[in-house]
Structures are given as C-alpha cells and as structure tokens.
Design a binder for these strands. Structure first.
Length: 575
RNA sequence: GCGCCCGUAGCUCAGAUGGACAGAGCAGGAGCCUUCUAAGCUCUUGGCCGGGGGUUCGAAUCCUCCCGGGCGCGCCA
C-alpha cells in the first residue's frame, strides 16, 4: 500500500534566507552582463539583429580567456560574411574598451575575451555591497510558485527516500526564492480514504493482541513495530477501546495514530532542517465539498461522464492513454479525484506555477495529472520533479529496508547517525532522477567521496585565518583602489572570477530546478580557495597585503555560506 | 506488449536550449607540512560518451533502430 509521494522530504531555511531577495537586487554575473551589453550595442550599431540563441559564457578551457561568445557565428548569415570576418568587426568595435584587455578570434569564429584585473577586482565591491543578497537574480520576477514535497502518508515514519525528496524540495524552494520567486512550501496529508482505515485497523489489531486477544490477522495491515507502540498508547488513553463498536474503535485508532505519526513526521523534518509553510489535509478537501465541486465543473465542461456505474474523467482529451475513474461504482472517490480537486485548489490560491515532487515510481501518474491541470484551465503550470530511489548501504553492503527495528531505515535514524549536513549534501550533489547509493560509511567519511566537508572546510579555514588575524592585530582592508590593487596574483584573480560566477549558478539552478548545480559551484569555489590557501600566504605577507587578502577571503567565506544556505547546509566557523 | 527514465574513465557522477581536442572527484602511481586547520595542495595513469544508422559546417546532446538496466501501465494509493 503505497505512499503516493513516496520519496520526499526537506531542510532548514532561516528567515533571512527567505526575505533578503527582492526584485531590486537581482544581478547576473558582471562579466556576462557587461559583455552582452557591449556586444548588443555593437550589433545594433551595425544594423543587425541580436540572435536570441547567442551564448556568452566562460569557456571550458581557461586558455580561451575569461568569456567566450558565439555571436559572430550566429550572425554570419545575417551579415552575409564569414563568421571570422564578423568576429573581426567586433574586435574593431570593442578594442578601445579599458575593461577588456584582450579579444581573440578562435576556431570557427568564437570571440574570446580577457578582462582587465581591475574589472575583476570590482567584484569585491559587488559582493560586499550585496551582502546576503549576493546571488539574487530576477528569474522569477516575483511570480508565485508553490513547491509541494514529501507528502508522505501519515501511516509510518519517514524513511531515507523521503529524505531525498525533502532535501530537494526544501533546497529548491530556497533557490527559487533567491531567484526572485515568491515561494510557498506545502505538505499534502493523505488523511482520507482506505489507507487511513488500514492504519486504524492495524492499530486496533495490535491493541487486541496487547490485551491478550487473538484476533484474525487483517488482510492488509501495517506491520511495523511502531504500530504496536501506538496501540499501547491508544489503550492508555482509551481504556475502553476494546469495548467499543469495531467501527468506532477503528476510528479512534485511526485518528490517534494519524495525529501521532504526523507529529513524528514534523519532528523528523524539523531535525532535518526542512520546513513547510502549509500542511494541507486531503480530508479537508473532501469535507469541504471541493471534490464534488470539481466533479460538477468537469461534468459541466463535458469532460466528466458516467459509465458502468462510475464517474470518469476524459483525460484522453489531453493526451492521456485512457480515461480515468473519479468515483468508483461503489461510491468511493479515487485518489486521483482528490488530487484534481487539490490542484484546482492550488491554482485558485493564485500560484503561477506549481511544482510537485514525487517518487520516481509515480512517473506514470504524470500524464493524467497534467491532463487534469489542462482541463481545469492551467495548462503548462504544473511541473513534476521525480526523485529516484535511494539505496541505503553500509560499507558497500545493502542495509535491509525492512520495518524491523534496529535497522537504519528511518530518516530520523540516518540523520542521527550521519548528521543533517552530510545527508543533505549527499542528496543534493546528484541529479534527482537517477538512483542514489547512500552509503552510511561514506557519508560519515571525511573524503572527497563526501564533499560536504571539503566545502565546509574551506569556510572554516577562512574563519580560522580571520580569528588569527584578529589575534595578531591585522585588520581587514576596506575596498579602495589602493587595497584592491594589492590583489594582483593569479590566485587572487581566480577567486574573483569564481565569485562572479555565483549568480549565474543560482539562476541556472532555479531555471533547471536543479539544486545540484549549486553544490557543484560550491565545490569549485572551495577548490579554488584551497588552492589559494596553499599557494598564497596571507598573514605573513605584510600588513597591507594581508589586509587586502583578508578582504577578499571574507567575500569568499560569505559566498560559501550563502551557497551552503541554499542547500540547507551549515557553514561552520571551525572544524 | 505499450509508455517513461537511465546507460559518459576501474568506481561515483557533471555535461539544459547542438559548438572549440569529452570534464571533476575517488581509486592507482609520483611528490608537498620549521609558515595562516594536510578534512589540504601539485603532477600523473585512465574514456570507440551502450551499439548501428541519420540530420548538421559541427552531435555525449536532436531523429531512428537495436542492446542492456529500472519503473509504470487498477473502479490502488
């Protein structure tokens, strides 16, 4: 008996991370923005039209300079000359720009730009002035988006698979906020229908056993030990439980069990740093008549019909394989029926975009849900992200995922064992739709198989230097032409360039709904920092240079913490 | 059977909208601590991007057909 969104769950967002971004402070990476503006002007001056598919990005290979553009190739046809000739025109136009040190034409017609050191040094000012809002972009333009994730049935504790969905949903929400969306996070509680009855029946069955009875084993029941624990507590609270009617007793068990399990789920999520703004009850949908309302709407629009004693939704109108039953011939509504009403409700709350995070085993459910959204007038506004299975291992050996006690099968156990930071980083370092091996030994290990420590260590290293500097009376410099000019090593420039990349990674992560891009960026920034640390001495370089380098490293620490916060991972000052 | 996802170095993975010789970490090999945290750094070995066709000036990326793995195809949730 399934949990529909069976693989979800999430992390921690502090208030600051949710509120620091606004439309006003969104910026892209400077190098890219600067170049695009310059190139657009040049294109306009020539009377050409800017090719929308033009790409300006840092080249894969550093030997091609800081930024690379393919506009010349794109314009070749329009300009009626070879890409390299078009490129030569750009070189003529832009060669007087003081911020651009060098322009090369390469390969089939790529334009490769190298910026001046002063241009890069300006990054320090940008990062400092932006503070916590550094990395904010305006991809979302204030649009309202809802992210629904975890939504595990309140019939048992969360397992490791839910953890992956939780980390993903929570982090995605943080990223979308950073990217200029107004985000609300929601947990859909499947507290109506058959599985709740099964839960109640399971608890009652155990309660009877606890009282020495030998009831017949129910056809379908939850076998976990936690059911017996709950049964014991129900009996304490309702000593007369076994004297009630069967139906009343099941109801009592059901409500008690659901509430207790849900509380447990909330606690587990809290411990994992995951937050939901709204907990939405399926039962409330039914009780408030929203499901019936949806049926009426569908019937009115001709998209619902009766056949074989059941009520059907004509999902084939919208590309689904077959029509789907909404009300069974026995009178019960289906899960899908609630789900249509639920999504209708979501859109009525004014969201421009709705993101559902589901376990990958529900991918077959997507076409009918998309069909439903189209039917209720919201085509293209539902986005489903699938989260694939997590294989729990210990030292390469599979860990039994059975419900037996003593196994690390629950999220709470895993978080208690390996920690929230390491777990989240592991989940968020891979694409969500591929299977993930989660090895408890590896996740605890301090190696590059487990890069969370590598990134956190970079942050801690900088903090350590700052502490030491303070102890030695070395003050951090304030940005000024003089102090910035002291950032003149190759390593300084590397760091500056890396800092400038951050907003674009945020934007890509938001657009592709892929938190792992932030994780990859952080590993890159950490790597650059560690290299810097090894090659460039800070405190022993003389007071002025030390002060200037500390100023730069302070920016690096800020951006590391900034990015880690998007993943819901802490940035320790000491390790 | 039909549909969806996946197949990139020994391992784990990144390569959105096609672009410059396919990237990273781990593991293997060789080095680096009298200096700010060696949870670090440097160098190095290693790849017919599952396979065959096709579109393109250009394909890991798009189309098609195979092979291999996963999942889904209920008046279940």
């Amino acid at each position: 008996m399934g949990t529909r969104r069976s693989l979800e769950f999430g992390g921690k967002r502090d208030k600051a991370a949710r509120t620091t971004c606004s439309k006003e402070n969104g910026t892209h990476m400077r190098a890219k923005t600067y170049l695009e503006n310059a190139l657009r002007q040049a294109v306009e001056a020539k009377g050409w039209e800017w090719p929308e598919k033009a790409v300006i990005e840092p080249p894969k290979d550093k030997k091609f300079g800081d930024m690379s553009a393919n506009v010349a190739m794109m314009l070749s046809k329009q300009a009626k000359k070879s890409p390299r000739d078009v490129a030569a025109d750009f070189v003529d136009t832009l060669s007087g720009d003081a911020n651009i040190e060098k322009i090369d034409i390469a390969g089939p017609g790529f334009l490769n730009f190298t910026f001046s050191p002063d241009f890069w040094r300006e990054t320090v000012n940008v990062v400092r002035e932006a503070g916590g809002t550094y990395g904010c972009v305006d991809e979302g333009k204030g649009r309202k988006v809802q992210v629904e994730y975890v939504s595990a049935n309140p019939t048992g504790p969360l397992h490791i698979g839910h953890g992956r969905g939780a980390a993903l949903g929570d982090s995605l929400a943080r990223i979308l906020e950073k990217a200029g969306y107004e985000v609300e996070c929601e947990y859909y509680i499947n507290d109506a229908g058959r599985q709740m009855l099964i839960l109640g029946g399971s608890i009652l069955y155990r309660a009877k056993q606890l009282k020495g009875q030998t009831p017949a084993e129910p056809e379908d029941f939850y076998k976990g030990e936690y059911i017996s624990d709950i049964a014991g507590r129900v009996l304490e609270k309702h000593p007369d439980l076994l004297d009630m009617d069967e139906a009343d007793a099941v109801e009592v068990c059901k409500v008690y069990g659901k509430d207790e399990i849900l509380e447990g789920i909330k606690e587990d999520l809290k411990a994992f740093g995951v937050r939901h703004d709204v907990w939405f009850s399926e039962k409330s949908l039914v009780d408030d008549g929203m499901v019936d309302e949806t049926f009426g709407d569908l019937r009115k629009s001709g998209l619902g019909y009766d056949e074989d004693g059941a009520f059907w939704f004509k999902s084939t109108e919208f590309g689904d394989d077959k029509d789907r039953v909404l009300r069974k011939s026995n009178g019960d509504t289906t899960y899908f029926a609630s789900d249509i009403a639920y999504h209708d409700n979501k859109f009525k709350r004014g969201f421009d975009m709705v993101i559902d995070i589901w376990g990958a085993d529900h991918h077959g459910y997507i076409p009918r849900m998309q069909a439903a959204c189209e039917a209720i007038g919201h085509k293209g506004q539902l986005n489903v992200i699938l989260v694939n299975l997590v294989n729990l291992l210990r030292g390469g050996e599979p860990v039994a995922m059975s419900t037996r006690a003593g196994q690390f099968e629950t999220l709470a156990d895993v978080v208690a064992d390996v920690g929230s930071d390491a777990s989240r980083f592991m989940f968020l370092s891979r694409k969500s739709d591929s299977r993930l091996d989660f090895d408890l030994e590896l996740v605890k290990q301090k190696s590059m198989d487990n890069p969370v420590y590598y990134v956190q260590y970079a942050h801690a290293r900088i903090c350590s230097m700052k502490r030491k500097a303070e102890g030695e009376g070395v003050a951090m410099a304030e940005p000024s032409p003089a102090s910035l000019a002291l950032l003149d090593t190759e390593q300084d420039l590397e760091l500056l360039k890396c800092l400038d990349l951050y907003p674009d990674f945020v934007e890509s992560a938001a657009r592709q709904q892929s938190p792992h891009l932030v994780s990859m960026y952080l590993q890159e920034l950490a790597s650059t920092l560690h290299r810097y640390y090894t090659k460039v001495h800070v405190l022993s370089a003389g007071p002025e240079i030390a002060a200037a380098r500390l100023m730069l490293l302070d920016c690096v620490a800020d951006v590391l913490a900034n990015g880690l916060s998007l993943l819901g991972v802490s940035a320790p000052e000491q390790m």
